[in-house]
């Protein structure tokens, strides 16, 4: 149990480069790795670090995010004391910007006042990693830091650690200091605070564009990355579905791919990530693709370097190929190929 830490997830970010995948959902809720949503990584990391109070600050299109998180039961956050808190932006006219927007926190200052924890982690919702925050907290305290920014190879990972009392000061004095968000506070070299930078050695990538999303997904097929992201003792938790095991038919040929439950595979799949409940028809070849949940690909199709969002249908005989460095995106719920009205 980590009684000293609060978890704060900023889920307000919008990436224009991810628009095709985030038209109907916040970036935090973008499906990833066959059965996860991006937010599962930070949320599971917080929970696996023993944190029992997690606040989520969303802004746009948070229906799918709320549906995903529910009461927090899948992360063991459905608690009487502490647990999961949800603080949507109270006024969509507010121009919150950056990770850890102090205005947004100010609207919900009660949460910080009522909580008993001494420190807060403020993190973005779209980093793919598996990190224990306890060593970070120990380091922060030993080094006498006021504000710590977590970095990877000298670049910010959009994760900050700060004493809660100082966070509340930053919130209250934001108009005087001119700090809009945590990054402003962590990067002001003229500040009176002891600013620290913690270098994280493990695998960590912020997902902020389609190409980047595609590449990080493909990284999952590297055994060393898979092992690091999904160790048995620090599982990435997600909303569970009651899908049966995936069924491979006689003609199925699957190589170097990750496949989630509930699928039926009759065709050929190579170097791909297949989501829950996906159907891949006979004679179809799916190569270097990301197919999200419940999408159906009928017979004799060829898909190469394509990201197919949820609930799409690819009619028989359809060919969609794209260069590996510029993958195509088929939007959620659309129908492609013969007889389609796209």
């Amino acid at each position: 149990m980590n009684k000293r830490l609060l978890g704060v997830i900023d889920a307000t970010t919008v990436h224009e480069d991810l628009e095709d995948l985030s038209l109907h959902r916040s970036v935090a809720a973008i499906p990833f790795g066959g059965r996860y949503r991006l937010i599962d990584f930070i949320l599971s990391n917080l929970v696996n670090s023993g944190i029992e109070s997690v606040a989520i600050f969303p802004k746009y299109q948070y229906r799918s995010l709320m549906d995903h998180l529910g009461s927090g039961r899948n992360w063991d956050l459905n608690r009487k004391r502490d647990g999961l808190f949800f603080f949507p932006a109270s006024n969509t006219g507010n121009h919150y910007t950056g990770i850890g927007t102090l205005d947004h926190f100010a609207d919900n200052i009660d949460y910080f006042e009522r909580s008993t924890q001494d420190y807060a982690i403020i993190a973005n919702s779209y980093t793919v990693f598996n990190m224990d925050f306890q060593p970070l907290l120990d380091w922060h305290i030993q080094s006498g830091c006021d504000i710590t920014e977590v970095q990877k190879n000298g670049k910010s990972l959009g994760i900050y650690l700060v004493e809660k009392a100082l966070l509340m000061d930053l919130i209250k004095t934001r108009n005087e200091t001119g700090y809009f968000n945590m990054r402003d506070a962590a990067r002001d070299t003229s500040s009176q605070f002891q600013l620290c930078y913690y270098d994280y050695k493990g695998y960590a990538v912020m997902v902020d564009s389609i190409v980047n999303y595609f590449n990080v997904s493909m990284d999952l097929l590297k055994p060393e990355v898979w092992k690091e992201l999904f160790p048995k003792d620090r599982p990435i938790l997600t909303k569970v579905k009651d899908e049966p095991p995936t069924r491979y038919e006689v003609d199925a040929s699957v190589k170097n791919s990750m496949v989630a439950n509930g699928g039926v595979i009759e065709g050929t799949v190579e170097n791909s990530i297949i989501g829950r409940g996906v159907k891949i028809g006979k004679g179809t070849v799916v190569r270097n693709c990301i197919i999200m949940q419940k999408t159906q690909i009928k017979e004799n199709c060829l898909l190469e370097s394509v990201i197919v969002d949820k609930d799409a249908r690819i009619e028989a005989g359809t060919v969609i190929t794209a260069p590996a460095d510029a993958p195509a995106v088929i939007r959620k719920g659309t129908v492609q190929g013969v007889g389609s009205k796209s």
Partner: peptide, 25 residues
């Protein structure tokens, strides 16, 4: 319905082959 184990998706390696089978997380 069953108690879901919450494990990552199954990984079929480059050398692996699977046919006429049911495979879980």
């Amino acid at each position: 319905y069953s108690v879901n184990p919450n494990q990552p998706p199954q990984y079929i390696c480059p050398e692996g082959t699977v046919s006429e089978s049911l495979v879980n997380e």
